[in-house]
């Protein structure tokens, strides 16, 4: 049975996590907005005007959903990865480990922090994009569901990274060598229909592709693969990674001696 005190604990972890990234807003909230503004200017305005249309839309309108999603992914991930690893490094994770807090409350508390930052940055980037493009929303429900699921998934990914990390290098390796390539190759800047058949098949193994696909559908109403399949893949990844994190924490891997 759910103990009401767990809800207080969950709120406490979430508040602590949110305060953390708000306290250092110059490092956490401003850079992604500036980076994405540059993407809008360079890829959208300058280069995009020479590219023409993509899937029936002008290039700027096509890449905006992908760029918003890219900022949500990287911020959700890095928030949890750096926060949980810092808590391990400074040993203040022990504050949680000695308290009567079940592991699932700890996990969702950190996810809550990652999702809050991811969505906050996503919203700010969306606001900036309005200076460059006239945004139309095709399906608000799909839009919100896809961005929420993606943020949850990458928050769990960040937690998994932090559990295994032993040095600060370890929490930058995965974003640099795995997350960034997956995002760039997930169809942020192009429709996979442009790729040769072999690379189209390879793209289907990239989970980020399904997230951008669903999110773009929310804005534009066009998708490279079916939404049911996209959400099935995202859900499968969430369940898989969540289970892995839950098992690791219950065994004390990376947090207890």
């Amino acid at each position: 049975m759910f103990n009401p005190s767990y809800l207080v604990a969950l709120k406490s972890i979430w508040r602590k996590e949110t305060n953390r990234f708000l306290r250092i807003w110059v490092q956490t909230l401003v850079p992604p907005v500036i980076t994405m503004s540059l993407y809008f200017v360079i890829f959208g305005n300058l280069i995009g005007s020479r590219i023409g249309q993509m899937n029936g839309f002008d290039y700027m309108s096509f890449i905006v959903p992908g760029l918003i999603m890219m900022s949500v992914i990287t911020n959700s991930y890095s928030n949890v990865a750096s926060s949980f690893f810092s808590a391990k490094f400074q040993r203040n994770v022990e504050e949680l480990l000695v308290a009567p807090v079940p592991n699932y409350v700890i996990i969702w508390g950190y996810i809550g922090g990652g999702v809050t930052r991811g969505l906050m940055v996503g919203f700010m980037v969306t606001c900036v994009s309005l200076f460059f493009v006239d945004l139309h929303i095709f399906n608000m429900f799909i839009l919100i569901l896809s961005v929420l699921c993606t943020s949850v998934l990458f928050s769990i990914g960040g937690l998994l990274n932090a559990i295994f990390a032993k040095t600060f290098d370890d929490i930058s390796i995965i974003p640099t060598f795995v997350l960034t390539p997956l995002t760039y190759l997930g169809g942020v800047f192009y429709s996979i229909n442009l790729l040769p058949e072999f690379w189209q098949s390879v793209s289907h193994f990239n989970p980020v592709f399904y997230m951008i696909n669903a999110f773009r559908y929310g804005f534009l109403g066009v998708a490279d693969v079916s939404l049911v399949w996209s959400f099935s893949v995202i859900t499968a990844f969430i369940v898989g990674l969540y289970s892995l994190v839950a098992i690791l924490l219950s065994k004390g891997i990376g947090i207890r001696s």
Binding site: P4, Q90, R91, E94, E95, P100
Partner: peptide, 25 residues
């Protein structure tokens, strides 16, 4: 504990209130 294991960037009041929250207070 033997070593300082609170978040050095947080103020004392916040550290205490957070800790109470973990215990459902």
């Amino acid at each position: 504990p033997q070593e300082f294991n609170f978040n050095q960037f947080e103020p004392p009041l916040q550290i205490l209130v957070n800790q109470a929250g973990y215990y459902g207070i």
